[in-house]
Design a protein around this nucleic acid. Structure first.
Lengths: 337, 337
DNA sequence: GTGAAAGCGCTAACAA
DNA sequence: TTGTTAGCGCTTTCAC
């Protein structure tokens, strides 16, 4: 069943059917009605691959994420999918699992399916895989790499203001010894966040202590491991910032398991504000990263690059806001234990 | 850059290039090598839409899920994506958000993109949306609808054995008053599970009490609401089964908020075994639904239908296993109000 | 306002 | 073993 069949049934040519479907204004209303009726009756669906072949563009945006198991990403995907579909486009999702082989493969999938652009939320240190995308003139929007180029835009998370909010909050509670549990070492996003943390610390006149800065893995296990180390110091932090909520939740578990109470002995602040953070005990104070805004920023950036193939990429910005719940409180007066 | 370009560079015809790419054995090894070299050099990616157009099949399987925010689904998607990609196919994911308009739209997306089959994990009561799929001879594999037909297979979750395990476990703890919090009313999956619950109850000689059977929404909120009702009865259940883990977690929260302790006052059993269930307090006893097996069952069923277009659909089965953690314990000896 | 026809890139039947 | 060619379904220019 193709447009020619519809054309025959409606007594017109396939060109007219095409025009009706694409909503061209050049067709007489009666003709439109007649064609529409036939389309309805036989439940005709145009074959997208023909259009893609003809145009060289598929109307699909690729989305590459590291770990769909981290609740932040499903929430993001949901928003991104909604925006994409609402704009009559399609989404092609790929997961890398933090694995560079899977990353290569994902990019290959994008290229083969002729996506109109790629939103890359899994920034690895290696830029090599991007090359193929750039070389094939596929618009690319990265997250928090702070680097733009021709056909390459970036959506940055405003770490500075977020960190400032978090640290100001802790300062009001008189915390002086503040730790940080980062993401995986070597990923640019996590490096950026560590740096932002150190600078923000200095801004509130606290001298950063290297031993208070630990690396995690963006998962609960990483938070558990890092927090266990932090709390076994004789001179331990009274507050800890985590690179994401999962890490923070792991940190909370570790602290509680070691007999510390939250927030009386240690305050903990997460990052993302996943749904779960409101459910754990105590509910987690966290820097909320607004998914919808973020998804919209990616989509807009992609559209812009697609429609302006020779334009320089743009640097976008999404702000976080501090959501104060119950995992933060006044610094302990004296050492307990 | 297309196959003709490669052909020219390699001094062969485009047909030969095609043969090399598809791994035909008819090409002389030296020719293969020469063509491969050119492909490597210019980093050529075949245009999938041309193949799709030619074949009428896209090498893509659709996956329709209700709610990517429920942690079970990301875990499932991850497995399904891995299997699909490993088999050199593609996955097209769509979320319905339990909304029938989104369902229609998702199916439309599948049809337009010429998917080779659809895995439908969001079974609504209405069969109407499927019609388009069936009519267009798109293989369809549903979850737990227990109905097969031409080009329609089903993967059932063995509710019977799961329920039996759960109830036997509770019986050993001398529970007599057992409640159930289902999914959304009207969805066939949840109806099936309620029925399975009632039958399993009878099998251990407990007379089901209608007021102990509540409806939820597959989310935490539903569990909270239903559990609050269940526990406000004078004569309240001492154990509750939930339709999924999120519901069970909501139930736990409600119970704890009302001052009941788990499992001393009420035992709770979930369903799915999402990662979170091991993290909540107390860790949740639950019926584990193995994602990888489930994903594999869907994939195999799809492949089978695709390769045997005129075959009758098959009924597959996936078994659950009871994971005993700390949310279940002996029934309270006497009323603790 | 509508139709005819070329061509997007690939594959497979057929020819050589 | 390799090449030639028709055609998958759609869009769009050009002609009417």
């Amino acid at each position: 069943m193709d447009m020619r069949d519809i054309a025959k049934l409606a007594g017109v040519s396939s060109a007219t059917v095409s025009r009706v479907i694409s909503g061209s204004s050049l067709v007489r209303p009666e003709t439109v009605a007649r064609v529409r009726k036939v389309i309805e009756e036989v439940k005709f669906f145009p074959n997208n691959s023909a259009t893609t072949l003809k145009y060289g563009r598929s109307g699909t945006y690729g989305l590459i994420i590291p770990d769909i198991t981290n609740p932040f990403f499903p929430e993001f995907i949901k928003c991104f999918e909604a925006i994409v579909v609402e704009n009559d486009k399609e989404m092609l999702m790929a997961t890398t699992d933090f694995h560079s082989g899977r990353m290569q493969q994902s990019i290959r999938r994008m290229l083969i399916r002729k996506v109109d652009g790629v939103a890359l939320l899994a920034s690895e240190i290696e830029t090599e895989p991007f090359e193929d995308l750039i070389q094939n003139r596929v618009p690319l929007v990265t997250m928090d790499r702070g680097h733009t180029a021709n056909g390459l835009s970036d959506v940055a998370i405003n770490n500075k203001s977020g960190m400032d909010q978090a640290l100001r909050h802790l300062k009001e509670f008189r915390h002086k010894k503040i730790g940080y549990i980062g993401g995986s070492a070597g990923l640019t996003i996590s490096d950026h966040r560590v740096e932002a943390f150190i600078r923000a610390l200095k801004r509130i006149d606290i001298v950063p202590r290297p031993q208070f800065i630990k690396v995690g893995n963006y998962r609960i296990t990483g938070g558990v491991a890092a927090m266990t180390e932090l709390l076994s110091f004789e001179d331990r932090p009274t507050a800890v910032l985590a690179a994401n909520d999962l890490t923070a939740i792991g940190a909370m578990r570790a602290a509680m398991k070691m007999g510390f109470s939250i927030p009386d002995d240690v305050s903990i602040i997460g990052f993302d504000d996943i749904e779960m953070s409101d459910i754990v005990h105590p509910p987690l104070t966290t820097l909320r990263l607004p998914r919808f805004e973020l998804a919209k920023a990616f989509f807009d950036a992609l559209e812009h690059l697609k429609n302006n193939p020779h334009a320089q990429g743009e640097q976008h910005n999404v702000k976080t806001t501090l959501v104060v719940r119950e995992s933060t409180g006044p610094a302990p007066k004296r050492r307990s234990k």
